[in-house]
Each structure stands twice: as C-alpha cells, then as structure tokens.
Design a protein around this nucleic acid. Structure first.
Lengths: 230, 230
DNA sequence: TCAAAAGTGTTCGCTATACACCCATGG
DNA sequence: CCATGGGTGTATAGCGAACACTTTTGA
C-alpha cells in the first residue's frame, strides 16, 4: 500500500496546471492535444498538464508542462482561468490553473511522448477529457479578447512574415475576413511593423514583402496606452 | 495537539478565495478591506477571503466571502487571477483564486465583523497584507480592461442614476476626464440606457434626468458582438 | 495562357473630439 | 446675485470601410 505521509487538519484539493498550446499553420489556428493513456478518460484527448510542485509557482508549472511537450522554454504564456468545479475530476478534488501558450509549430519538438501528441484545428477538436471542452472555449475567448490589447499574434508567426500571413492569422483568431488593403494600411499605420529588404517568393506566386514585429516601438506606444482596433 | 486526519501521498497546497470588493461613492472608486486580527500581518489590511470548502466551487466560495462581509448575494462577481507564488503566505503554501465584486455601497450591510471592515478610496489604500497589493493592482487592471467589453459599471450605481454620476464612474475607473456632451451623446447612442420621466434635484442644483440601464437591449446587442469605446 | 496571389490609392460616411452659452437652484 | 452644476448642438478632422486593376510566377 502506498504511503500517505502528508497530513493536514482539513482536506486539501490537488492543484494542477494545464496548458492550452496554440499554434498557427498559415491557415488554421490549432491546439496541441495529448491522448490519455490511462483511466479516467483513457483514449480521450486532453491538454497537457500535471500536478503543481510545492516549490514552483503556477506559471513555472505551466512552463514546465509546455517544455515537456514542445521543448520550448521561452514561448508566450498567459494564465486565463482557474477551474474548480468540485466534481470535475472523478477521482478526487482537483483545481486546475489554466494557461495558454502561443508557439510556432515549426519550432515544436516532439515531447517525451511525442506519439500521443497531435495538432488539431480549432474546429476539428474532438470531445475532450474532463472539462477540457470548457477550458478550450474559455481559452479561445480570452485569446480573442487579448488580441485587442496586445499584439500577441506575432508569437504565432515566424520572425519574418508576409502581410498576408499576418492577415490570415488575425482572420483565424477572430473568425472574420478583412480587406487586404485596409488590413495592410491599418497594420502599417500602427507603427509596430518593420518592412525588411523585400524578398520571398511563395510556392508559385508573385514575390511578397517580408515584415518583422518591432518590439521597441510597440513598447514605446504601450507606455501611453493604446488599442488595437479590429 | 490538533488532529491531522487528512492524508495524502504528495503534499497539497491550501486553496483560498479572496474577493476584492469595489464600490463607488459618487466620486471615488473604493475597495472594502478587512483589518487582520491575527498574525501574520496582524493589524494590516487585507481583502476578505478564506479557505475553499471541499464541496464548493471557487465561485461559490467567493460568493460566500462576499456575503459574509456585505450581506449581498447577487452582486456581480468575476474571477480575474490565481496567485500562486510559493512563499506568498509565510505559514504554508497557499494558492489564492481571486475574484472581484462590484457592489452598491449603500446596499452593503456590515458583515459578521463590521468593526474591522472599511472602505478605502483606491488611491488611499495602505500597504496590504500578504501579496494583496499585487492582487489589487491586477484587479484594477482587469476591471479597466473589462469595462471596454461589458457595461459592468452599472453594477456600481443605483438602479437610477444621472448621466453625470455615470460619467464620474467611468472617469474614476479609467482615470480619465470626458467632455460632458460627448460622453452623454456616446452613451445614449449605444442604446443601453433608458431615460426615465425626468426627476431628481440634487443638493442645490438644477434638476437632472434620471436613466436606468436597459439590460434587454444590451443583451440583444451582445448577440451580434460589439465594443464599448472609450 | 491561365490561375493564383500581391502590390497599390481614392472616395465616402461616420464618429471622435473640441468647444460655449443659457438655465435652474439654493444659499 | 452669485456660484454651481445641468442641458444642449455644431463644425472639423481623422479613421474605417468599400472598392478594381495591374503584375508576377509557375504550371
């Protein structure tokens, strides 16, 4: 029998961190899911997550989960909600502090158990384990909200990208369509893009300008408070 | 010696809910603080909060805390962040799921321990216990963010209010000044206010129109998605 | 030569903003 | 009568939105 060596006067819940990992493949917004190998919900897909260690903050725990699944250490990561329904885990009381991360799919290395990890387009996500359907809904909603205040979208693109790629990303996140000229004008007027010496010829099309995100001018602007309008 | 009757294989943190209670007195945005009667931080001010019971969700716990301090059961309440630094409580590892509530100060009844509860204007809040300074900063920031998407301000006003009161509220939350005519026009154009048969003569001034928030038309608008611009 | 994507500028309507005078009340 | 706050409308500038044709490339 296992040893129960931690004792408390009152019952304590377990605390886990889960990490919704968003990626963008140029057309679709995707999330990385793990197939559960054990009960409960064996065979169902779920977000990577695990118990919080006693000497790490929730953020550190979420980063650890992210690293274990993707090999990434410096991705953008953001806490969005804590899930606490008493019966959300059939085994015991579990509180989950949920984060989402924004990563570049191309930089993701298979994790410890790569075989069970898979990218799913947002609209093709199957029914998930536990209350992870709800977690995904809230993550998506918060991502949409946040993109109005911070240019987090750049975390999902390569460091150099075309205006069309950027537009597709915003369209995928917000589920809208933009006019190419208006989108480009608006983005450039924001002053947070730097146009590079032009290059790149995509598959078999006309050559397109490359841009990079300009963090310095963004940070300057942020001082005075501003809004990204879409 | 106290009995430690709950046993776990791994260490578990304690989980609490804290509730930042915002009120508006017509001029200033205020928060309700409790003076701590015991160590640690005895004599310092802190947000009401307490341990989460094993059969309640964090939301239920936060509502319970709110009820105990204010007698209110139906106030607006919103989870905004979970605080988890390993050393944030000197006694033991404590995870705090933090909420803020918006209440009408006039409806607040003294709680179980009214003597130790007091309203503080946001810019007069003393140095708080634990990491509650940080909790307050994040609560305020999230409140400002949220007011761009939802007309939560009405939760802080009486059910009937003048345009000036509403303007003062928005100015207090966002720390800005608006032109009276522009503010009024913008608000009315939103279509979520209903003007009442005019009345109210304030202390010794000209009579002012009264308005009420129109939840029906707000809900209609929300279906199609919209933004409150300020 | 055809299909697919990229580059480019103008017009129009709306909204944000700035702004000033008169009125009612109570002291 | 004076101080305080309330009600009200207009003019301007900037932004958002709609919109089409030409160019390049690879198949």
């Amino acid at each position: 029998m296992e040893e129960l060596k931690y004792h408390y006067k009152y019952p304590h819940p377990s605390v886990t961190t889960d990490c919704v990992i968003f990626g963008f493949d140029g057309t679709l917004l995707k999330v990385l899911l793990i197939e559960r190998g054990v009960e409960p919900f064996k065979g169902r897909w779920a977000f990577p997550g695990g118990f919080l260690k006693m000497d790490e903050s929730a953020l550190q725990g979420a980063k650890r989960e992210l690293y274990e699944e993707t090999g990434l250490k410096d991705a953008y990561i953001h806490q969005f909600h804590t899930f606490s329904a008493p019966d959300r885990d059939p085994r015991e009381r579990v509180i989950t502090i949920a984060y989402y991360a924004l990563v570049r799919i191309s930089e993701v290395k298979g994790g410890d158990d790569a075989a069970q990890a898979q990218w799913f387009p947002l609209d093709k996500v199957p029914s998930l384990a536990f209350d992870h359907d709800k977690i995904l809904r809230e993550a998506t909603q918060e991502l949409r909200r946040q993109i109005h205040f911070e240019p987090i979208g750049f975390e999902l693109l390569p460091s150099q990208f075309t205006m069309t790629q950027l537009q597709h990303l915003y369209e995928a996140i917000l589920s809208v369509k933009f006019d190419r000229r208006n989108f480009s004008n608006k983005m450039l007027k924001l002053g947070i893009l730097t146009q590079l010496e032009k290059t790149i010829t995509l598959p078999n099309k006309k050559e397109a300008f490359l841009y990079k995100f300009n963090a310095e001018s963004y940070n300057e602007m942020k001082e005075k408070g501003f809004r990204l309008e879409f």
